[in-house]
Design a protein around this nucleic acid. Structure first.
Lengths: 140, 140
DNA sequence: TTCTTAGTGGGTAAAAGTGTGTAATTTTGG
DNA sequence: CCAAAATTACACACTTTTACCCACTAAGAA
């Protein structure tokens, strides 16, 4: 179960420490790609990634060409070094506007990597209305 | 698993560096031909190419004549040189409007080679509606 | 305290990518 | 059919990037 909020600095070499707790669950290598919903990166374990790939490949090419392009072309397999850091590819750094301060979120079956200031913004902007409705629906 | 975005310059001799990560998966030689869907080139490992050939040959000639022409007449087997570069045949350069700046995309079981400006255009033009629907369907 | 683990910083060697020269091959024209 | 020209293949040198390694600090547990 992936959970928790972890704050780190990206070092001058572009390396981001990846939380030990999450590494335990994700295994020795995992997939990083752009979120299609937000300006952040998402991380999947190889197992979760395979599931996603299977789903996409079950769709007809005509309909899924654009999604395939975005999903796969932005994806990278990464393995943490001995100290648990990963190297974020330049394109992904740019997409997620990552510079120095970054936060990793564990979200049940995947993770998100955010630039700190974008995350703060996101938290403020999120639709409170929808949030309230969903909470009601869940009976929380 | 072919994935990632790789940006290179085509040198004055018409050689394009082909990403080491993708070469690992594709093997020591592979097929390059025109995309039937877009103004870009597509690259298949020899294994994937065989599959594709089998599929096409299973279609009736009447229906598939045009596709066969495009696919086979433009297909070329290429092997990277010691530094990992491939020489793009002139016809393919012309078809994909390749000049200097090119981008290689890994897309699961094949690759695409784009002229940078065409790729940018393509990404902007793609049907956002359909993209959103497909993303929703996949639960991303 | 001392040991262990997580996180940070930096050096070095290997690999990837780029440019250029030369030999081999193919094409073209006489 | 041969020689010149063009093209392609191969080799080498160089630069940049990435992977790998080691040392250090901080925090928590024994």
């Amino acid at each position: 179960m992936l959970c928790g909020t972890y704050h780190y600095n990206i070092d001058p070499k572009g390396r981001l420490n990846f939380p030990a707790k999450l590494r335990e669950d994700l295994g020795s290598s995992f997939m990083v790609t752009c979120s299609v919903a937000d300006r952040c990166l998402v991380v999947y374990s190889m197992a979760e990634w395979e599931k996603l790939v299977a789903k996409v490949e079950s769709l007809p090419m005509g309909k899924s060409r654009a999604v395939r392009r975005r999903l796969f072309a932005n994806a990278q397999e990464v393995s943490p070094d001995k100290q648990g850091r990963i190297l974020i590819p330049q394109e992904l750094m740019t997409y997620a506007q990552l510079s120095k301060e970054a936060t990793v979120l564990g979200i049940s079956n995947y993770c998100e990597i955010w630039d700190d200031s974008l995350l703060e913004q996101q938290m403020n902007e999120e639709d409170q209305q929808m949030l309230a409705e969903t909470v009601e629906e869940l009976g929380l």
